[in-house]
């Protein structure tokens, strides 16, 4: 009964979404990369605000199914500086729905010219609880056992963390290739933890065409990410690693839908994690805000 209801509801939602998509006005949307974990050199256009929801669905061994959500507000402060606020939460089956904290991140283009490899510096402060399951990065010895704890236990653990990433990214022959080196520090007591994320993607067709259901609007690629231990044991032993095909669909109305099934590669990793993202961009948000204040 539950399955029948779910399947009818999902078909209705899909139909409504298709109708909505086909009636929205057409605008070119920045062909942002469809990555969930890896960052490329792309920054938000100055003055624009992008609002994105990122959902991760998974079930750890010995734990309940969960859906973790991150609402992302990304603002282009300058052409070389993007600032972002994340609000995180999660729902675990048979347990509860809880907010899990916030993150504030900033990305800075280090070099003002375009090069073969473009470095971007990423600085983030996180104030989240141990119940956060968004997996926006995997570092240290993060594993599925962390995700199997009950919400009641995990939310008692408070994490104030600083995170640095060196993003190296190249746009070559319409391909984007990005590598991220991650260093994260719990500001309380834990040692520095390390991780990586690498990705490549390409639009399926490169000429712009005013259409919705066409290959011109699709970008496909793959990303891989995982932990690299910590200062005490810089190793790949007992660490999680994932490989995840990614696909992005640029929709009318300056919106974008992204999907990625991720597959765990080690015993420590989740078997599978499904990610869905939906983003809407508001151009000239900063200017509109300034005019509104005046």
């Amino acid at each position: 009964m539950y399955r029948v209801l779910f399947s009818r509801a999902s078909r209705f939602v899909a139909l409504m979404a298709l109708l909505l998509v086909s009636t929205l006005p057409h605008f070119a949307h920045a062909q942002d990369k469809p990555y969930f974990v890896t960052y490329s050199q792309d920054l938000e256009e100055p003055g624009n605000l992008e609002i994105e929801s990122k959902t991760a669905l998974a079930q750890p061994n010995g734990g309940n199914r969960y859906g973790a959500y991150a609402a992302e507000f990304e603002y282009g402060a300058k052409a070389w500086w993007t600032t972002e606020l994340y609000l995180d939460g999660q729902t675990t089956a048979n347990e509860s729905t809880i907010p899990t904290g916030f993150r504030w991140e900033n990305r800075f283009r280090i070099l003002m010219q375009e090069h073969l490899i473009n470095p971007v510096l990423y600085v983030e402060f996180e104030n989240i609880s141990g119940a956060d399951k968004t997996m926006l990065e995997v570092v240290g010895h993060d594993g599925q056992s962390d995700l199997a704890s009950t919400n009641a236990e995990a939310r008692e653990e408070h994490e104030h963390e600083g995170e640095l990433k060196l993003i190296l990214s190249s746009n070559v022959h319409d391909w984007n290739i990005s590598e991220n080196f991650i260093a994260e520090k719990n500001l309380g007591h834990d040692p520095w933890e390390f991780g990586y994320a690498v990705a490549a993607s390409r639009p399926l067709a490169t000429m712009y065409r005013d259409c919705t259901f066409c290959v011109q609007k699709l970008t496909a690629g793959v990303e891989a990410y995982g932990g690299l231990g910590d200062v005490w044991a810089l190793t790949m032993r007992d660490t999680s690693h994932y490989i995840a095909p990614v696909v992005g669909w640029d929709l009318p109305g300056r919106s974008r839908l992204t999907f990625s099934p991720g597959f765990g590669l080690t015993d420590t990793s989740l078997d599978r994690v499904y990610r869905v993202g939906f983003a809407v961009e508001i151009p000239g948000f900063g200017r509109q805000l300034q005019e509104g204040i005046r």
Partner: peptide, 13 residues
């Protein structure tokens, strides 16, 4: 970038 013009290297050529 210094004068506010983004790089459009992310667009296909």
């Amino acid at each position: 970038l210094r004068h506010g013009m983004p790089s459009w290297s992310s667009l296909p050529q």
